[in-house]
Design a protein around this nucleic acid. Structure first.
Lengths: 193, 193
DNA sequence: CCGAAAGTAGCACAGATGTACTACCATAAG
DNA sequence: CTTATGGTAGTACATCTGTGCTACTTTCGG
């Protein structure tokens, strides 16, 4: 059952990447998954449920990958490695990003997606804040600690930078090296100021 | 003629914002524009042309607004003002961003959009590089000048930051102040290092 | 005035889409 | 063996989609 669901979700992702979110219909998905429409509808009674599940599963996959990273001890390198998980540096991550974008674009039509999108954004934001804290070794000034906004803001900056770079790499994959250099520079700036 | 085209394009934008790109069909657009399908098809013989024109017109509008900004002499404030034009700080700019996102999501289905998207990205990038140059007053080190990458990279950072913040403001419009603070901080960092 | 050109509208068609409904098949509990 | 349960598949239908085609109206140069 769970296997069928994941198989169908994978078909959704493939369709999004190859033909766009507009081509995701019960029929196209059923066909690329190699099952009948009736079977698909037995698992996902409605199109919205199909897309909703696919979206959440994709986000969980990314979360798991990030959670599974093993710290090497070099905090700056670890931070770069973590942020790299959100950049489209290979086919897998590129597909994830495209699916994510398609989901955002589909939100007006499927309001149920809004919650999923918000969860994902919050989780990524929190991860970036933790990254900022770790890299800086908790050297927060008294005033900042009082306001409780020092690492929050640093995390937000990291977060925005990562998402922006991801977007640009999608348009121009050749800028990979530049993007990584920018991430490294930002981490270094964070650590040294 | 040109007026009709712009009227139709506006209808496309409205539909995207309210019901998502998936709801953009010749019929829905014709209806929200208050014209008959046949009339629409007289102006835009095909759905692709309709969307393509709407996309380009929207990008041109943003370009014109940015180009129309008058320098105040305070280069840092001007830079912040320019970057703010790409953040969803009001309904107008929010709509622009949503349309942009929808266009990216639709690219797999309409390859013609790729060129438009690339043009827009390049233009924004170039603007960010110019911003970086101006704020720094051309104080580039010898090595950087040799490599020709100093302000390029700074511009790319600014660009990524702006797009990332825009994305996040779309999800959480309440973070407006934080986003502006981040932009200001980045400009200051650029000017002082 | 008038005829050509351009704009507007409507109809028709083939195909796709979401969904309801029924039928078949497996496995396992009684 | 029987029966119930859950997975699989196929058909049917109303609606929406893009597009081709024809007809009407307006505008305007001669």
């Amino acid at each position: 059952m769970q296997a069928r669901k994941e198989q169908l979700a994978a078909a959704v992702w493939n369709t999004i990447v190859e033909k766009g979110i507009g081509a995701v219909s019960v029929r196209t998905v059923a066909e690329t998954a190699g099952v009948a429409v009736g079977s698909l509808r037995h698992v996902f009674p409605t199109r919205a449920e199909l897309i909703e599940f696919s979206a959440r599963l994709m986000i969980d996959k990314v979360s798991d990958r990030v959670a599974g990273l093993e710290p090497t001890g070099d905090e700056r390198a670890d931070a770069v490695e973590t942020l790299s998980q959100f950049l489209p540096l290979d086919a897998q991550r590129r597909a994830e990003l495209e699916v994510n974008l398609a989901l955002i674009a589909e939100t007006p039509a499927l309001p149920e997606l809004r919650g999923i999108r918000d969860d994902a954004t919050r989780a990524l934001r929190a991860a970036c804040v933790r990254l900022a804290e770790r890299v800086r070794g908790n050297t927060v000034s008294f005033e900042e600690a009082l306001a409780g906004r020092g690492d929050q803001r640093r995390g937000a900056t990291l977060h925005a930078l990562a998402d922006g770079l991801a977007l640009h790499l999608l348009v121009d994959p050749a800028a990979e090296e530049e993007a990584l250099a920018i991430v490294r520079a930002q981490i270094d700036t964070l650590a040294e100021t």
